[in-house]
């Protein structure tokens, strides 16, 4: 028999709350992008012979956008909370490139996986360094959409919660600018999603660690040897 044994560890990377967060977030972003795009470029569903009193089509699109916005925000706040109480892979510290090591890791990923001009083994059970940094950027984009979105919303709602965002319009100098930026940032999400989905497939294919299914079951498969070595390093760092 010609097969070599590769001992794999099954690592529980994404806990259930993280997985639920992920899919609610994905759904929210999809809905917000679609309804947002339609708010910017509405379809004219009816032509001729129609009386406004019978329809509320555009009103519903906006309603869905705003309702989803609330879900999106609270889901996001929950994730921040989980960054403090969740496991090692969910910890908020992963997302800030604060140490020299983090930058070294980012460089590795850039040269090995993105540009592919160097070869090195960089298996990480959680996200890799660049991915973490990208998520940090998307968190900022989330925050930005929430602030600009609720800023605009404060002008059309008497709700106390959106009233908390009254300061936003004066800061940006007008609703038009706010809408422009809010609209433009939508494309950040579109581009992010394309790259994100591709990279999941890429890693599933190249590393064979089961990333693609990890957001469903939570498991990734990592070589036993490397996992133990990483663990030791972590423990050493902790001291």
């Amino acid at each position: 028999m010609k097969h070599k044994e590769v001992p794999l560890f099954r690592v529980y990377v994404w806990e259930r709350p993280v997985r639920i967060y992920h899919w609610i977030n994905a759904l929210c972003i999809l809905v917000l992008c679609v309804t947002g795009y339609l708010i910017g470029n509405p379809i004219v569903l009816q032509h001729g012979g129609n009386d406004a009193s019978n329809h509320y089509f555009f009103g519903w699109i906006r309603f869905i956008h705003f309702a989803t916005a609330y879900l999106f925000l609270f889901n996001f706040l929950f994730r921040i909370y989980w960054g403090f109480v969740g496991n090692r892979y969910a910890n908020w510290k992963n997302y800030f490139p604060y140490s020299k090591k983090h930058f070294q890791n980012m460089w590795d990923v850039l040269t090995v996986d993105v540009l592919q001009i160097r070869k090195k083994d960089i298996e990480t059970p959680g996200h890799n360094a660049v991915a973490n940094f990208m998520y940090f950027i998307t968190f900022l984009a989330f925050l930005f959409e929430v602030i600009t979105g609720f800023g605009m919303y404060s002008a059309m709602s008497d709700n106390w919660f959106s009233d908390l965002f009254r300061w936003v319009i004066p800061v940006f100098g007008g609703d038009l600018i706010l809408r422009m930026i809010h609209h433009a940032v939508m494309w950040v999400f579109v581009v992010f999603t394309i790259v994100h989905v591709y990279l999941v497939f890429y890693h599933d294919y190249v590393d064979g660690s089961g990333v693609l299914s990890s957001m469903a079951g939570g498991w990734k498969f990592v070589s036993k040897e490397k996992f133990l070595k990483k663990n030791q390093e972590k423990a050493a760092e902790g001291k």
Binding site: V44, Q46, A52, S53, F58
Partner: peptide
């Protein structure tokens, strides 16, 4: 009300503009 209904003018000389 036309905005909320999704009834929009698309060109200044279209039927919707007249409405």
């Amino acid at each position: 009300p036309n905005y909320d209904a999704g009834l929009f003018v698309e060109e200044f000389d279209d039927e919707n503009a007249r409405k």
